[in-house]
Write a protein that binds this DNA or RNA. Structure first.
Lengths: 219, 219
DNA sequence: ACAACTTAGTGTAAGACCTACACTATGTCA
DNA sequence: TGACATAGTGTAGGTCTTACACTAAGTTGT
């Protein structure tokens, strides 16, 4: 190992999105130790000696919050020399999407963990507010040209539920018929044949994603 | 500085694109020292203790190749633990675009430096072939929804020259009239009023980019 | 039973946009 | 002045996007 150059502390962070109470929310954790004890920040941590970047993001997310098995991709790497007052820390930011239905109990806030609406975040540690903003922007952009929104859906879902997800992320209402023309014809989803019954109204067709892990580029 | 965790060697690399002989070419440098002496790789180097990531990319590009003042953006961070046999090196990859006209003498190949067509690269060090492939893909995608191609143009250019750039990057011919309808109407370029004369044929109108550094998202 | 309520689900017409396609214009050079 | 080479231009057909309002099928309360 002939290299002995300047080294940096390398971390990953994850912006975990889900939908709660008709809002796009982000998972925050309260930092357990000084300095910054009690300050809200994104889940994340240091990359292990023999660990891949995405592996680290997945691991810290699981260990710190219990969230696992979700869609996750790299976002951007933040490395301003002064971004952490303790020293040089470069973080490889990721974002992840969790279907609300898949949060078995993890949707409860407690002292360690909370979900905050993306548009009303508390003050966050370091440059984590910029990371969230970039993740939200990327997510909204991807709605237009990919099937990424399906990553928020449970195993079976209605088109109205899916439309609601689009509207919440984009922050604007969409036309129902036009939405159904676009999305109802996607080859990556199919009708289950079953119906969703709730409330005093007509039941809705249930759909399913054919290959749940997959995100396609469309157009 | 209470942190004393595992650290990584942090580097940046840059995929520098330009157009030469009607081909999209990438700047390679020959590694000067063992191990890998004489092996081709992307320009790049270690991030200084108090240096930003983009600053490092700009600096190493300038020092190793003389290229400066170009459009540059972050691409992706590559961090597989085994990507460098010497030890853990994480690289923040960038890509840059240089107008051919702006390469004053830098377009000459020599022992240290050469420009290779993106589709006929020699064997490269580490995972640099994957980095080039991702950069090319990103560049091609951005042609569709941004004005990034203008970063290849000199101060003044003709629409035929610009069309050629699109065709070379995309690898397919485009319709002249449709191209001019799309791009001739962009608000970010304007006619200079002058004409480009060359060869035994009709002169072409010269255009100029209004705000040269800027890349707009269109559509 | 039926009336009130709630959400699901559907079609169409106008305009914008995209695509394919071929000829004239204007210069240079022999 | 004729041959040559590239610049520059319009249109018609099809596709896609947008705006827009009513009927369908359940539940609940009387």
């Amino acid at each position: 190992m002939p290299i002995s150059p300047p080294t940096a502390v390398l971390a990953t962070n994850v912006v975990v999105f889900t939908i709660r109470d008709d809002l796009l929310v982000v998972l925050l954790r309260s930092r357990p130790r000084e300095p910054f004890q009690g300050v809200w920040s994104l889940p994340g941590g240091l990359v292990g000696d023999n660990e891949g970047l995405e592996d680290c993001a997945v691991r810290t997310l699981r260990d710190q919050t219990g969230v696992r098995g979700v869609y996750l991709e790299q976002l951007y790497t933040f490395g301003r020399p002064d971004r952490d007052p303790r020293g040089r820390v470069v973080t490889v930011a990721h974002y992840a999407l969790v279907p609300p239905a898949q949060l078995h109990g993890l949707d409860e806030d407690d002292g360690q963990r909370c979900w905050q609406p993306v548009n009303e975040l508390p003050s966050l540690a370091f440059d984590h507010d910029r990371i969230v903003a970039m993740a939200h922007q990327r997510l909204a952009a991807k709605l237009d040209y990919s099937t990424i929104a399906l990553q928020f859906m449970g195993e079976r879902f209605t088109l109205s539920e899916l439309q609601r997800v689009y509207e919440i992320i984009l922050g604007e209402p969409l036309d129902k018929r036009n939405f159904r023309k676009r999305v109802g014809g996607l080859p990556c989803i199919e009708q289950t044949g079953d119906w969703f019954r709730a409330g005093n109204h007509r039941p809705a067709r249930l759909y399913r994603v054919k290959q749940p892990g997959r995100v396609d580029i469309i157009k």
